Simulated assay, not measured.
Amino acid sequence: MRHSGDARLDNDMSSSPQADLQASLASLSRVVLGKDRQLRLALSCLLARGHLLVEDIPGMGKTTVALAMAQVLGLSYRRVQFTSDLLPADILGVSIYETRDGSFRFRPGPVFTQLLLADEINRASPKTQSALLEAMAEQQVSVDGETRALPQPFFVIGTQNPAEQVGVFPLPESQLDRFLMRISMGYPSVAAERALLIEPDRRDLLFDLRPVLQAESVLQLQREVLQVHTAPALVDYILALVQHTRTQSAFTHGLSPRAALALRHAAQAWAYIDGRKSVLPEDVQAVFAAVATHRLQPRERSAAARPPSAEELLAAVAIP
């Protein structure tokens, strides 16, 4: 559905940012086949200054998405493989004693990067998972009584194995809430998987990717996303959706005010990629499932007590 107010961004924001974003998505789509929607959600998450959780079985391209995004967006990249024996210091860094002068020198951990891949994050203990809470929420880490700022932009992509797999620790609600979105890659289409089988070296395309953006450009885009207008009626629509989740007895609790803000920012980013200067109801609907579902925990885990789906929640709230 299109609205008469669906105007393109004015010349003061120029068309070049959208051209760069479309070029970035095109580059990503050449490496990750048949997942255009997931890639756009991932880019929207970054532009909304959030963090992304990708949940799927191994071998679905989660790590490829993270590495491809870092290269296309011109961001520094580090990967941490989460395991049961991983310690917080392995992520944040540690102070090393210097015997020459009797001082301590801080050695930064892999968190000091612009795009951090926390691979299989739910294979680490809750203590290690919690090491990322401050970094994700405040863009800084505190070690040995000193607070250190992280590079900007700072974007965490966490990958998560399904809960039924062996050796996983469920992410606590506080950790889940730090991720603005959760997506699933899903199985590829037959055509996409056929291309993977015919060209088994497609992963080599990662090394041919050239940056379309740079870190400073991404920061500028994040600032411009915040300027995308959200009309009062759209704010009321977001509030109505949030309030509706709080009336559902099938959930342990509804969406929080932080989730409402996440929904607005994600919708702004989705509209911005489309080249619009105002948010439409369709933008809110496009990002709702990715923003909301990992924050809505079912009260009972049984087929008989299935909670409402994202589509059912959207259908129950009138569009302004």
Rank of each mutant, 00 (worst) to 15 (best):
210 R>P: 02
289 A>W: 11
226 L>Y: 13
231 A>V: 10
225 V>Y: 02
185 M>H: 06
8 R>Y: 09
105 R>T: 05
309 S>T: 12
54 V>S: 07
20 D>T: 13
314 L>V: 15
216 E>K: 13
224 E>L: 15
229 H>P: 01
60 M>H: 13
274 D>A: 13
166 V>E: 08
143 V>T: 07
41 L>Q: 09
163 A>Q: 08
183 I>M: 02
59 G>W: 03
35 K>Y: 04
136 M>R: 12
168 V>E: 11
293 T>H: 05
64 T>D: 07
302 S>G: 15
118 A>S: 04
161 N>C: 09
58 P>K: 09
112 F>L: 00
12 D>I: 11
254 G>S: 01
95 S>K: 00
116 L>V: 10
232 P>L: 09
38 Q>D: 14
294 H>E: 11
155 F>E: 00
7 A>G: 14
92 L>M: 06
65 V>D: 00
206 L>R: 06
94 V>W: 01
170 P>S: 11
317 V>W: 08
138 E>V: 14
296 L>W: 04
60 M>E: 14
178 R>F: 02
89 A>R: 00
145 G>V: 07
101 D>G: 10
271 A>G: 14
245 T>S: 10
105 R>W: 01
278 S>G: 07
18 Q>E: 08
202 R>S: 01
68 A>T: 03
248 Q>K: 03
248 Q>F: 06
203 R>Y: 00
73 L>G: 07
223 R>G: 10
241 L>M: 05
39 L>E: 00
200 P>L: 04
280 L>A: 15
181 M>L: 07
220 Q>V: 02
167 G>H: 05
6 D>H: 01
93 G>M: 10
38 Q>I: 07
183 I>E: 03
183 I>R: 00
198 I>S: 13
18 Q>P: 07
265 H>M: 14
111 V>I: 13
287 V>F: 05
217 S>W: 02
192 A>T: 12
71 Q>H: 03
163 A>Y: 05
159 T>H: 10
302 S>E: 15
307 P>E: 09
157 I>N: 00
189 S>K: 03
46 L>E: 12
118 A>R: 11
89 A>L: 00
133 L>M: 11
119 D>S: 05
307 P>F: 10
209 L>I: 03
70 A>M: 01
41 L>T: 03
162 P>N: 06
89 A>N: 01
81 Q>H: 08
215 A>C: 10
160 Q>D: 14
209 L>E: 04
264 R>N: 06
207 F>W: 09
162 P>A: 12
122 N>V: 05
54 V>G: 09
240 A>Q: 04
240 A>I: 09
260 A>S: 14
23 A>R: 15
238 I>D: 09
227 Q>L: 11
308 P>L: 03
220 Q>E: 13
245 T>E: 11
20 D>N: 15
277 K>F: 02
38 Q>R: 02
112 F>T: 00
163 A>V: 14
47 L>D: 14
169 F>M: 12
279 V>K: 01
